Simulated scan of single mutants.
Amino acid sequence: MWLKIVGSLMVVIAGATIGFNLAARYVERPRQIRQLISCLASLKAHINYAALPLPEALSKCTGGVSGPVADLFQAMGRILVTNGWLTPQAAMNQALTETTKLVLRKPEKEVLAVFSANLGGMNREEQHKSLDLAHEQLSLIQCEAEKLCEQNVKMYRYLGICGGLGVVIILI
């Protein structure tokens, strides 16, 4: 009897944990997009006004930002310093594969790929325009991510708990 109760409790807790972890990814995505927008704005200031070299600007643009997004820009700057022959786009792709805790999806990664392809290959005005375009695109993606967050967070939490309860009912 006690074994069934303990086993059932463990199954419900496992289901709830899975549901809450999936919901946390939906909560984290808009936050990381906001951090990306913040880092891009800081990068724009470092490139246009301070006229810093790209690896140094990438390392300094993460001021006030922590977590996977800061790790992404730090890794990109480090890659450009150690491998000076790499293009910014190749460095961004390598940094995206190195940074594992990012919950970015394909649209954000495409914006970053286009942004990094234009980075360093143009004059300051064109880079300024490219940064503005990336900022606008990420802002639109952020609105969509917040809508998805509102829709799916409760659903995944309830689905995790109810799924665990459903498995318990089937097993008993």
Rank of each mutant, 00 (worst) to 15 (best):
W2I: 15
W2E: 13
L3V: 13
K4W: 10
V6Q: 08
G7R: 06
G7N: 09
L9I: 09
M10E: 04
V11I: 14
V12C: 06
V12Y: 01
A14F: 08
A14T: 10
T17A: 14
T17V: 13
I18H: 03
I18A: 10
G19I: 02
F20Y: 12
A23R: 00
A24G: 06
R25L: 05
R25S: 06
R25F: 02
Y26M: 00
R31Q: 12
Q32N: 05
I33D: 00
R34A: 10
R34I: 07
Q35M: 05
Q35I: 00
Q35W: 01
I37F: 04
S38K: 10
C39Q: 03
A41N: 15
L43V: 04
L43T: 04
K44F: 06
A45S: 15
H46C: 13
A51H: 15
L54R: 07
E56H: 10
A57S: 12
C61V: 01
C61N: 02
C61T: 03
C61L: 02
G64E: 01
V65H: 01
S66F: 07
S66T: 13
G67D: 02
A70C: 10
L72C: 00
F73C: 02
F73K: 02
M76D: 01
G77C: 04
R78D: 15
I79Q: 00
L80H: 00
L80E: 00
V81Y: 09
T82H: 14
N83D: 14
N83M: 11
G84R: 11
W85T: 15
W85E: 15
W85I: 14
T87H: 06
P88K: 03
A90R: 14
A90K: 12
A90Q: 13
A91I: 07
M92Q: 01
N93M: 12
N93P: 05
Q94W: 06
Q94I: 05
A95G: 02
A95M: 02
L96A: 05
L96Q: 07
T97V: 15
E98Y: 05
E98N: 10
T100P: 03
L104N: 01
L104H: 01
L104K: 04
P107R: 07
E108N: 06
E108C: 04
K109Y: 08
K109T: 15
K109D: 09
E110A: 13
L112T: 04
L112N: 09
A113T: 15
A117Q: 15
G120R: 01
N123S: 10
E125C: 07
H128F: 14
H128D: 15
L131K: 00
L131D: 03
L131W: 00
D132K: 14
L133P: 03
L133G: 11
A134C: 08
E136T: 12
Q137Y: 08
L138V: 04
S139D: 11
S139L: 13
Q142I: 01
E144M: 08
E144Q: 13
A145H: 02
A145L: 03
E146W: 04
E150L: 11
E150Q: 12
Q151A: 14
Q151W: 09
N152Y: 11
V153P: 01
K154S: 10
K154M: 07
M155K: 06
M155N: 06
Y156F: 10
Y156A: 00
R157Y: 07
L159M: 09
I161V: 14
L165E: 02
G166I: 10
V168K: 07
V168G: 08
V168L: 05
I169W: 04
I172K: 11
